[in-house]
Design a protein around this nucleic acid. Structure first.
Lengths: 201, 201
DNA sequence: GGGTACATGTAATCAGTTACATGATTTA
DNA sequence: TAAATCATGTAACTGATTACATGTACCC
């Protein structure tokens, strides 16, 4: 999967870069630890970013001039990163160019499904049912979270808080989980149908 | 995303490892180039594996005793890899343990969507519509491929040929694409609804 | 004041990607 | 026989992951 995006200036940014840029643009100056928190509350639900990345990547972006850094001298010596105008510009350019590579489905369960004919049919069913179960659990979590969410006031777009974004992210996850459940239930149904045919023969 | 799987013997295998093991188990002894072809015809539609991987990984598996290697001495000096009993065992163990980590959705477009509120609403629509369009195109391709496919004879499970597996893979892609389209159309609808609310206010 | 959870980082490793490079076969 | 394409690999790089290590604040 080729995901990098090369700027006119020559450096190339990864998805992680844009995650950091985006969070800093939306939430304002943050420490890596705060970034970690933001990620966990939102996109981290379906795209995990190990905390080490959120300490390393801002440092790199700072050397590129896309962030500025201010470090505490006492106590925890936190690093506070702020997005620069160049950073905002890079983010804007990226957002203006909608991703055009078809999404890949790098899914271990799918890979297992693909080879499950080497084992008895029960293996295929087990894989699919496990996925249905996992995605159902995720879905329940999202639905619960969604109910808890205060209805976002219909304000001007662009003025959202992280709290409201939690809702948007949850909704995103929700749609995805429903799709995944549909997918795996389809697999279960297909295996069942296949067994019926085999039994009839 | 933690995907590796540690065997009792201590080494750990990656998804790529199981891809190679699985293909060799199903298709019999193959050269890396043949693996490349198998991948392209099937799972490569939604999970790309650069050819370099399919040359490097078998070599590694051979040192672990999961494959055996036979090299031509003349001409192209092809390497022919065969799965060993240990290899089959490793594959079997893996298949017997359905993946239990919830699938991640590492999707650039989703990441863009997540930050699209920093830009005008049109950006969000552009991203979603681009995805709908991309996934529709993929879906059409799969549907065309499916129609071409001969109806697989209802034989004993486990006796499929690569040709028939092309059909299974296509069907898998088909289900996924439908889900993705549903997801992104949902996004478009949500943005539309949001605009309606905003306009009414 | 001792334990525990919170917070902050660095270092080593490694799989995957990209780039490079060349040989073999076919076809015009 | 030259060009194009098919086929086969190696090498360098690099982003992400894993593991390690330590410091700070709070609570009992």
């Amino acid at each position: 999967m080729k995901t990098e995006h090369v700027s006119s200036a020559g450096w190339s940014l990864t998805p992680t870069s844009y995650l950091v840029l985006g969070l800093l643009a939306r939430e304002g100056p943050s420490t890596p630890y705060e970034l970690k928190g933001h990620v966990a509350a939102t996109i981290g639900h379906f795209w995990s970013f190990p905390h080490a990345l959120l300490y390393k990547e801002p440092a790199r972006l700072a050397t590129l001039g896309l962030l500025s850094e201010k470090r505490e001298l006492d106590g925890r010596r936190r690093r506070l990163f702020t997005i620069t105008d160049n950073g905002r510009q890079a983010l804007r350019e990226w957002l203006g160019q909608p991703a055009s590579q078809p999404t890949e489905l790098r899914d271990l369960a799918v890979l297992q499904l693909f080879f499950a004919d080497l084992e008895p049919t029960t293996a295929r069913l087990a894989i699919a049912r496990e996925q249905v179960s996992l995605h159902r659990a995720q879905l329940l979590g999202y639905e619960a979270g969604e109910r808890q969410d205060a209805r976002p006031p219909a304000g001007a777009p662009g003025s959202r808080t992280i709290e409201q974004w939690r809702g948007v992210t949850l909704h995103m996850g929700l749609l995805y989980e429903r799709a995944a459940i549909e997918f795996w239930e389809g697999v279960v149904a297909a295996v069942d149908a296949e067994e019926t045919v085999a039994a009839r023969a």
